[in-house]
Amino acid sequence: MATIQDVARAAGVSAMTVSNVVNDHPDVRAATRERVLAAMARLDYRVDMADRNLRKGRTGTLGLAVPEVNRPYYGRLAEAVVTAAGRHGLRVAVEQTAARRENGLAALPLSHNRLYDGLVLSTVGMGPADVEALKVDHPVVILGERIFGGPVDHVAMPSVEASAAATRHLVERGCRRVAVVRGPPRDEVDVSSLRHTGCRQALAAAGLPAGPALVQSVPAPTTTSTKVPSSSRRRPRWIRITTRGPSGPSPCSSPGRAARDRPRTRRSS
């Protein structure tokens, strides 16, 4: 395998000049650069990227750890991260944690081991008890609503505020009994609990009930598909509360006391 010294001898330059060409140094004359590149091609010289990265202290690669790669949300997230990183000349390595705590924690040391220059970590599967594990000496950004107040940068959606705004919108349309369909509660800082909190706050501010009868919990989604037995295919699996446009009546504002007091539902099987 050709070395940098072999290239230097073939091109009639110093090893430092070859290094400057490899690193695209602007002070190398065009004729010299062409001579060095030609010698590299003749000798099939390959840059040792591991050694180069070790000397530079950078890999040019960011890590993105997400729970699943086959869900649309995380696919769009990966696309956005790759596009943004590309504008800075960086590549992105995507890994899947399967929403498991141990896999999320395992992704943290990779930046320390110089596989990544930094890590973007979706903390699904991790929780407030894992804050200490985030105290690392390399750049980490966490995503999601599972950990707040940690020692690293954090990007999260305003789940409480958004849910409260959506609830206020329904109240302004005339709804007086607003139902909540939520995922299984895990703790007070998971996204489902935060959105439930926002809904309760808006209902309390409007003086409306928010009792347990108006809350329906559904199982967490899984990545495997389940065949529905024929005997139950006609049973409604979801209840969706719908409103119509300004020109038409909404379930909560239709004439009649019953419509004002009880939202209608459209069942889809």
Rank of each mutant, 00 (worst) to 15 (best):
D6W: 03
M1V: 03
M1P: 04
R114P: 00
R42S: 15
S230A: 14
L121D: 01
R91S: 13
L121S: 05
I147M: 04
T61F: 01
P229D: 10
A2G: 08
M49I: 04
R101S: 06
S250T: 09
W238M: 13
A30Y: 05
S269D: 13
R173I: 07
A258G: 11
A259G: 14
V171I: 15
G149S: 09
R71C: 05
L105F: 06
V180F: 10
L54W: 00
P212C: 11
G63D: 04
I241Y: 15
V228W: 03
S122A: 15
G75W: 13
S14D: 06
V181G: 11
A41K: 07
V82D: 00
V82K: 12
A220K: 12
R55S: 00
S231M: 03
A258K: 15
S163E: 00
V22W: 05
E145W: 09
A165K: 12
Q216G: 09
G125F: 13
R100P: 00
P246G: 04
E172A: 14
V82M: 15
V82A: 15
R76P: 03
V136M: 00
G63M: 02
R35Y: 02
S111Q: 10
A210S: 08
V69K: 07
R257C: 06
P72Y: 06
L134Y: 01
T197I: 05
A2N: 05
G118K: 09
A85F: 07
A156Q: 09
R46D: 12
A85T: 06
T3L: 05
V218R: 12
L208R: 07
L115A: 14
A220Y: 08
V140W: 00
L108N: 09
E68Q: 15
L43R: 05
L43D: 09
P212L: 04
V13P: 02
T242C: 09
P221W: 01
G60R: 05
A65T: 12
P109Y: 02
M1R: 11
T243L: 10
R267N: 06
G89S: 03
L43E: 08
D24S: 12
T223Y: 08
V47G: 11
R146E: 06
T61P: 01
R87S: 10
S268K: 11
V120Q: 02
V218P: 00
T17W: 00
V81W: 05
A133Y: 06
M16C: 04
A259D: 14
S253L: 02
V136Q: 00
R52W: 06
R58K: 07
D48Y: 03
N70C: 03
T242N: 14
S14Q: 08
N70A: 11
L77T: 08
I147N: 05
P184R: 15
P229V: 08
L115I: 12
K227F: 14
T223A: 14
A15I: 12
D117M: 01
V47E: 12
M157K: 10
P221E: 02
H196W: 03
E102V: 04
V178M: 12
A133S: 11
P184N: 07
K135C: 01
M126Y: 08
G118L: 09
A205Q: 11
P185A: 09
L194K: 06
A213P: 01
S253T: 05
V92I: 07
S225P: 05
A205Y: 04
P72G: 04
V36K: 07
T97C: 13
